[in-house]
Design a protein around this nucleic acid. Structure first.
Length: 662
DNA sequence: GCAAGATGCGCC
DNA sequence: AAAGGGCGCATCTTGC
């Protein structure tokens, strides 16, 4: 008879020896000499068994469906046990991850948190905490052994119960996406190991060279003030050292990017970088160090065949997007290479970098001042005999927003093969000419408006975002002063931005109208949910949940920076409270909707013979394919409009590449 | 000595 | 009344 069996393992770990799944990925942990899975525990709902692996009847699993809370881990443990001859190969009907299920159900991954949410029962993790650095059975007293076994029996019981009680709410597609994600990570990607070794040496060199330019790291007598750095732990990015250095140099401390904004920091940097070169070195050090550490992690993770396993979290974000996991985040590998100048330092001037990239594009080589280039993405290559294709959805989020609000004018225009940014120029910016040059200011502004203003951004934010998306500085040309109707004189900074934001909102009523727009509709729904939950049903049928909505009073700085009490609306997501409002809810909705479109494509790609999905990054699929698969095949699949969002213009751009890039 | 929070850096 | 959002990891400081 077919059974659903909860399956769990308890393994030796040691914080002291830095041996745990926190410090390494599951496979590294299992390959380690300290690896010891000393308890196997299973539950079929009636019997909960726990004991040493020697005493486990593996045949009981034959033909059954297994449920583990974090299948990635338990599956890796089992695989290694087979390799070591500690477990036989068995045929199972399937193996599912209840942590992925609870992420989908209630935005929680930890078993204890999920059980508390779903059943109102608090489980103790004490026995596991007490097993830190303890060998089984020698380091456990008889009492401790009994407690540990009792504890171990509970885990598979609960993860099985979660499955039995709730898996009917998990659509078949999502179950497949969950297992697909786990399998992708376990399969891993091929790494160019020769290049990796080169990168490790080069980035280490750069790191050391950069470190020497930080005054507090190189305080050898040439300091005129002779104050020394006693009392300071001189670490490369120590905030205390930075502050002290600024004091000594008579310059203000750097503005905090998260508070004062990115451009405030840029301004500060531009003001002082000439006379204080360490300022640039500081940022460089952070970048180079990050890169260097990533290279080391890749190296430590390599298998003998040059592939590297990785982790990606199914439903890592509450919108349903995947998120990174386990030290190397496949979704945030830098796009542009780090360029090392002849002096051994990282080039940080954006203009120089762009020029170097253009030079490379046209001549195939970097200019002479580039000593070497470190490109993380170049490390990821197709396996022998395979090709690599990278494909991403074209402007999926702005298109999704247009579809969600029913902007048929824009949708028709895009379906006719035209640009969604041009739609903005024509329909809400008054552009009337025959042709819109993609290099024109109008086009750039239209693009910035579509990308930045759909979710309620204000004028100050728009200045930064416009710069980020198009490179243009829209404050250029702002008057120094403005006169208000009452005759008073105020700064003219941001005049243009204010005008653009107001015009966008005026011209896009489906989005921004204070009564009929989507921001207002979602905000109203949110406020009406006070005292209960807001459920936003997505076109795919999936539901976004904002639980326990409340109106709270919060101190916020007003225009003059003085604290003022204001009303904010908050909700519970995954056990934590967040503030939200119309624009933010709109963004969540669009992100979740676009994720569902993309997820459909991933399933079709995966079902296509000759295509393996290596990993994904929000709207981009990185594929390893057989010789006969072309980029057009991939584009065709990723241009499919799911049946639950008829009329959405979906398109993709794919390219065949020798290594991961963009 | 560890955990939590703040900050910066990377991505879509 | 106004408010872009979603992530993860490394480093450092602070508080227990």
């Amino acid at each position: 008879m077919h059974k659903i069996i909860g399956f769990d393992t308890e393994t030796f770990f040691s914080r002291k020896l830095k041996y745990s799944v926190k410090t390494m990925i599951a496979e590294q942990y299992c390959k380690h000499e300290l690896f010891d899975p000393y308890i196997i525990s299973v539950s079929d709902g009636e019997t909960n068994w726990a004991g040493h692996r020697r005493d486990f009847n593996w045949n009981a699993l034959e033909g059954q469906t297994l449920i583990s809370h974090n299948r990635y881990f338990d599956n890796s443990v089992y695989n290694e046990m087979v390799v070591r001859g500690w477990a036989p190969r068995i045929n199972i009907a399937g193996w599912h991850c209840s942590a992925n299920l609870t992420a989908y159900l209630c935005n929680r991954r930890a078993l204890a948190h999920s059980i508390e949410y779903l059943y109102g029962i608090k489980l103790s993790k004490d026995p596991r905490e007490n097993s830190d650095n303890k060998r089984w059975p020698a380091d456990f007293s008889a009492e401790e052994q009994r407690k540990m076994l009792d504890y171990a029996r509970l885990d598979p019981f609960w993860c099985r119960k979660i499955w039995v009680d709730h898996s009917d709410k998990w659509p078949e597609k999502e179950k497949r996406l969950s297992n697909l994600t786990i399998d992708q990570g376990m399969r891993g990607v091929q790494i160019d190991t020769r290049l990796l070794d080169e990168y490790i040496c080069q980035s280490h060199e750069m790191k050391l060279a950069t470190e020497k330019l930080l005054p507090w790291m190189n305080d050898e007598g040439d300091d005129e003030e002779e104050i020394g750095w006693e009392g300071f732990k001189t670490k490369p990015t120590s905030t205390k050292c930075i502050a002290e250095q600024c004091r000594r140099s008579g310059i203000p401390c750097p503005p905090v990017k998260a508070h004062e904004g990115e451009e405030a920091y840029e301004e500060w940097e531009n003001e002082y970088r000439r006379n204080h070169p360490w300022i640039v070195s500081l940022s460089s050090w952070r970048s180079v160090n990050k890169l260097y550490k990533s290279f080391l992690t890749v190296k430590a993770r390599l298998r003998s065949d040059g592939t590297m396993p990785f982790g990606l979290k199914y439903f890592g974000a509450h919108t349903g997007r995947w998120s990174g996991d386990a030290k190397i985040n496949m979704q945030n590998m830098r796009k542009e290479p780090v360029l090392c100048t002849v002096g051994g330092f990282m080039e940080s001037n954006q203009k120089n970098i762009e020029e170097a990239m253009r030079h490379k594009e046209s001549t195939g080589k970097f200019p002479e001042w580039v000593k070497y280039a470190l490109d993380f993405r170049a490390l990821v290559i197709p396996r022998p005999g395979k090709k690599m294709i990278v494909s991403d959805l074209a402007q999926i989020e702005p298109r999704s927003l247009a579809w969600l609000v029913g902007d048929h004018q824009t949708l028709d225009f895009v379906r006719a093969g035209k640009s969604i940014y041009e739609a903005e120029a024509r329909f809400s910016m008054g552009f009337k000419e025959d042709k819109l040059d993609k290099k024109s200011t109008i086009y750039a502004e239209a693009k910035a408006r579509r990308l930045a203003l759909g979710y309620g951004a204000g004028w100050l934010k728009f200045i930064t975002m416009a710069h980020q998306y198009t490179g243009m500085d829209i404050t250029e040309g702002d008057p120094e002063f403005e006169f208000l109707p009452d005759g008073s004189k105020v700064s003219g900074y941001g005049k243009r931005s204010r005008e653009i934001v107001a015009a966008y909102r005026e011209q896009n009523p489906l989005i921004a109208d204070k009564e009929k727009g989507i921001w207002a509709a979602l905000e109203l729904a949110f406020k009406r949910s006070i005292g209960s939950d807001l459920k936003v049903v997505l076109p795919s049928g999936r539901v976004l949940r904002y639980e326990k909505v409340k109106c709270e009073r919060k101190l916020k700085p007003d225009k003059d920076g003085k604290p003022r009490l204001s009303a904010v609306f908050t909700c519970d997501i995954g056990g934590r409270r967040f503030e939200s409002y119309g624009g933010k809810l709109t963004e969540n909705l669009v992100q979740a909707f676009a994720r569902d479109v993309f997820a459909d494509h991933i399933l079709i790609l995966n079902d296509t013979p000759g295509i393996s999905v290596l990993f994904t990054s929000h709207d981009e699929a990185i594929l390893e394919v057989d010789e006969h698969i072309t980029k057009h095949d991939v584009e065709n699949i990723m241009s499919v409009c799911p049946e639950w969002c008829a009329g959405l213009p979906v398109a993709a751009e794919a390219k065949e590449v020798s290594h991961y890039l963009k």
